[in-house]
Amino acid sequence: MDTGTAATVKISELREIPPQFLREVIAIPPQAIKCCLADLPPNTGMWTPDAVLWLRDTVMNCPEFSMKVVKQNGSKGIAHVYLFAPENFPDVDRSVNRQIKKADLWKHQKDVFLSVTPSGTSSTKAMGDAVSAPRLTSGKLEKSFSDSAREPSSAVSTVDMPPPLLLSKTGELMDVYVSVACHPGHFIVQPWKELHNLEALMEEMILYYSRAEEKPVNIEKNKLYAAKIENQWYRVIIKGILRNGFLSVYELDYGKHEFVSIEKVQPLIDTFRKLPFQAITAQLAGVKSQQWSEEASIVFRNLVEKKPLVAQIQAVSESANSWDRKIVTFLVDTSHPDTDIWIHDFVSQSLVEFSKDD
């Protein structure tokens, strides 16, 4: 009620508020205010994962924002607002609303759900059936950490492209790190065993580009570049060229969409094209494909984002570009000493509880 976050807790962790404190507690109104951005494109419908993740990263990476309320929906308790970084207030043209409105994030196809075929490849459809979870025959899954169908972008020349990332075979286990989670229909995993190689690459890019002379770059859409974002250099593909000197880019190793100044972009030299791009777009297996509610999305993110997990891939949707490839996978949290948590089971149970509230 005070943070606006949905969470799951054990019953044993709940405590009743003592009667002598109850009056003081209820005297303070709930501090979380439900808001939505005003002046967005009409008939947007469900946001694309690209738009959701961009907004989340933009808001979460800024310590404070200014807000202008333009309308209040009393029946739903929602405030329609313009959101500003402090230095941009109150210029509406520089608001977060206008930035995301001008981007091409709305143009991407909504989630396309994959259904598993017996061969382990996949077919595509708008609303897929749930994938049956495998049964554990014995014991607990063991980790070895020590050891898009989205709308395809234009095909990129394979010259000087990294080799495609090798995935585990269908049904086999693969240690992964979830770098970004939007909802069960769209999240990003990275292979755990390659994280140290990625970190080494990032350090090499910082050293190289901090010494290299910055030169004007000929920017083309759907081409690979290096981009400086928050003092780090990333391998990116240009998704859109905006009128105000900014670019919409996709981080090929982390699966995030960002806006960067054209001045922060440099050519991606051959040395940094050898490691396969690490971001793998994924969809959770074992749950009914649907449009995910805010509550279900938040619960899912809390369960998986920024965590090492075990993946069991059920299907792969290949694409001409490695960053457009999408997998359907189970996720398992093996960090608990006594039991493994299959994420799809937890999500399914949460959906049942949310439907009761409706």
Rank of each mutant, 00 (worst) to 15 (best):
V116N: 03
V156N: 04
V156W: 01
G45R: 09
G139M: 08
E13S: 14
G240Q: 08
A130Y: 03
H257M: 03
I188N: 06
S144M: 10
P41R: 09
E151F: 06
Q266G: 07
Q349R: 10
F84Y: 15
P134F: 13
E318K: 14
I262L: 09
K76G: 10
P18S: 01
C62Q: 15
A51F: 07
K125L: 14
E220C: 09
W233Y: 15
W342N: 01
V92S: 05
I17Q: 01
K307P: 05
S348F: 03
L309Y: 00
V25W: 11
S75V: 14
A155R: 12
E24D: 14
D147G: 12
I262E: 15
D345I: 05
L242P: 01
E16P: 01
V189L: 11
S350F: 03
V159R: 14
T48M: 01
T5H: 08
G128W: 01
E318L: 07
S319D: 15
C62P: 01
A282N: 06
V299D: 01
L105N: 00
S355M: 11
L114K: 04
V131M: 06
K10Q: 14
F113S: 08
M174G: 05
V189N: 01
V112R: 10
N302E: 13
E353R: 07
E220K: 14
I341D: 09
P152M: 04
I343A: 09
G120Q: 03
V287E: 07
T339E: 12
A51C: 07
L14E: 09
L83P: 00
F84S: 01
P267Q: 00
A85Y: 05
L351I: 09
V25Q: 10
K102A: 11
L136N: 10
I219T: 10
Y225V: 00
P163S: 13
P191V: 07
A227E: 04
S322V: 04
S146V: 11
G171M: 08
K215A: 12
L22P: 00
V299T: 08
I327W: 02
D357I: 11
A130E: 10
D333V: 05
E295G: 02
P163D: 11
A311Y: 00
N88L: 02
A133T: 08
R325H: 06
A200H: 13
E214I: 14
V217F: 03
T339L: 06
D104K: 07
D91G: 02
L309R: 00
A181N: 05
N43T: 04
E251K: 06
A79M: 10
S293D: 03
Q283W: 01
L167H: 12
S210C: 09
N88K: 09
K169A: 11
Y254H: 10
K307Y: 04
F300E: 05
V287L: 06
S319E: 15
H108D: 04
Y177G: 02
L105Q: 00
A181D: 02
R235P: 02
Y225I: 07
H186S: 15
L195H: 05
P18Q: 03
V112D: 02
W323Y: 14
S75P: 04
P63D: 10
K215D: 11
V316Q: 01
V69F: 07
W192H: 15
V9S: 13
E142P: 00
S119G: 13
N61D: 15
Q190C: 11
P276C: 06
